[in-house]
Design a binder for these strands. Structure first.
Length: 266
DNA sequence: GAGCCTGTTCGGGC
DNA sequence: GGCCCGAACAGGCT
């Protein structure tokens, strides 16, 4: 379930190989995930590239190599990153792998909505396009003033699809958006324009809170959030709201399955 | 076998 | 141009 914290957790697997030198790159010959990479070009490029760092921003990941160049990864719906030993043999649904004398870094994705892309660079500094991405909700740069100005021209939007816009709330996905709205006590089908000042402040605070806590809980070791989270109750029909003890409702809003508590959210 | 799905992009309609 | 919706992508799971 790759949203903000799950992405961070997956990235940590590859980050663990920091300092290793990779002398072999592999990609599935029929993969759809590596469209920006030429297979032969890649093999010659990876004669010796040392992993110098791994970064995440929202649902995006960037891995840097000391000799120059960056590998960008997006997990899509079902992607994952693993680190296996150096004699690992590629399995079904593996699309991309890097091998060092110590380990194999694998990108796996059954549904192939994910993406692996290579960005050439001679600079060691992170690319400009990466550095200038909009601030993540859990960062200090994501202030209430910024939140307000960001939403100025979106007054007609429904809250649920609004939260899913990666240009505004990088890293927030379907379950996080539901968690945020439930904690802010706002129905997912409310329009932004209908919110009063207190509700806007709530939406801002709960967005930051859910992103911060998800990273602490899930990002560290993939622990599940406590039972007091909507997360634990939202996946199937018939779930019970942990606050009101009444039934949760599930319906499609903005094209996505949404779960919310009519007794709590107005 | 049918229906559902944690993400993104694209095309069409308004 | 903005916004909304549905479809498409492909396979696992219930």
């Amino acid at each position: 379930m790759p949203e903000l914290a799950e992405v961070f957790f997956n990235a940590s697997h590859w980050k663990a190989a920091q300092g290793e030198s990779f002398d072999f790159a592999w990609m599935h010959e029929k993969t759809r995930c590596c469209r920006l990479i030429d297979g032969r070009e890649l093999e010659s490029r990876f004669e010796k590239l040392t992993l110098s760092g791994g970064y995440t921003h929202g649902k995006r990941m960037l891995f840097a190599f000391r000799q120059g160049g960056f590998l960008e990864v997006h997990l899509g719906m079902t992607g994952s990153l693993l680190r296996a030993d150096s004699n690992y043999e590629e399995e079904r649904y593996d699309h991309f792998a890097l091998r060092s004398p110590h380990s194999t870094l694998v990108f796996r994705d059954p549904r192939q909505f994910g993406k692996v892309a290579w960005h050439s660079s001679r600079e060691e500094a992170l690319p400009d396009w990466w550095s200038s991405l909009p601030p993540e909700p859990q960062s200090e740069a994501f202030t209430f003033e910024r939140f307000e100005s960001m939403l100025e021209r979106r007054s007609g939007s429904l809250l649920k699809p609004l939260l899913l816009q990666q240009a505004l709330f990088p890293g927030v996905g379907n379950w996080m958006a539901d968690e945020i709205l439930w904690r802010a006590r706002l129905r997912p089908d409310r329009r932004l324009t209908s919110l009063d000042d207190v509700e806007r402040r709530q939406l801002y605070c709960k967005t930051k809170w859910v992103c911060e806590r998800a990273l602490e809980i899930i990002g560290k070791d993939y622990s599940d959030p406590p039972k007091s989270w909507l997360f634990q109750h939202r996946w199937k029909d018939g779930g019970i709201c942990p606050v009101s003890k009444k039934e949760l409702r599930r319906e499609t809003i903005g094209g996505r399955t949404s779960c919310w508590s009519p007794a709590v959210q107005v």
